[in-house]
């Protein structure tokens, strides 16, 4: 079974040289720590930056330079700032090659719910609905089950949706799955996790074909 860093490490293996990538808050942010050597990716922060760098040193802290999680950050050489409408133009326009975000639920049709729980304080969707609206390549990074032990990979999302038919891949603490033709397709097992365990933790339709390899981290 993977921890949060393990999920981030596995997702980092999906990165391709030259890609522009948007990493959401939570586990997705950790992906930046595991970008493989020789792979040059440019991180997009939807508040208006391409080329996000690591956190600043105490001396480098600049109140005018934050990421979408409102954390102080730095820039890398070749970075660029832009306004919010330009930022979402590149997102909606499909220029960002990969979006990684967290979710409360994902279903077998690629629908995602990650912004609202009825009866609880609603904080808002931020940029999530825009990020899932047109991206070709959206990976969800999340735990396979919720705190109550219930599956987060469903036949149909029960929570208010963030987007429909948009998720192509899910990486959880248990597995790597593709979302295609109305089903989750098991591609890889987390170390020490059996296909049976993944099946038991997946409420939506799961396709297990042949021997499923264990992922290499």
């Amino acid at each position: 079974m993977l921890d949060k860093n393990g999920i981030a490490k596995r997702i980092a293996q999906e990165l391709k040289d030259g890609w522009y990538v948007n990493l959401g808050i939570g586990i997705p942010t950790l992906v930046a720590n595991y970008i493989p050597d020789g792979i040059d990716v440019t991180l997009q922060s939807e508040n208006g930056l391409l080329g996000m760098g690591p956190f600043p040193t105490e001396e480098e802290v600049d109140a005018d330079l934050i990421n979408a999680g409102k954390q102080t950050i730095t820039t890398r050489p070749g970075s660029v700032f832009f306004h919010s409408a330009d930022s979402f133009a590149m997102i909606r326009g499909g220029k960002v090659q990969l979006t990684v975000l967290g979710a409360m639920e994902v279903d077998q049709n690629g629908d995602i719910a990650n912004w609202k729980i009825p009866g609880k304080m609603v904080k808002g969707m931020g940029g999530a609905m825009d990020l899932v609206a047109s991206a070709e390549n959206i990976i969800v990074a999340m735990m396979h089950t919720n705190k109550a032990g219930e599956s987060k990979l469903l036949e149909k999302c029960t929570l208010p949706l963030t987007g429909v038919n948009c998720i192509t891949k899910v990486v959880t603490n248990l597995a790597v799955l593709e979302v295609k033709d109305g089903a989750f397709i098991l591609k890889e097992r987390a170390p020490g996790v059996s296909a049976e365990e993944i099946k038991n933790a997946t409420a939506g339709k799961l396709i297990v074909e042949g021997d499923i390899p264990e992922m290499t981290i």
Binding site: S84, F88, R92, M121, M125, G126
Partner: peptide, 20 residues
């Protein structure tokens, strides 16, 4: 917001920027 004193219209961030 919970007491109903304040009305809130949540709008996706990119849509909000484009609306402006």
């Amino acid at each position: 917001m919970l007491s109903g004193e304040l009305e809130v219209e949540l709008t996706p961030q990119g849509t909000l920027a484009e609306k402006c």
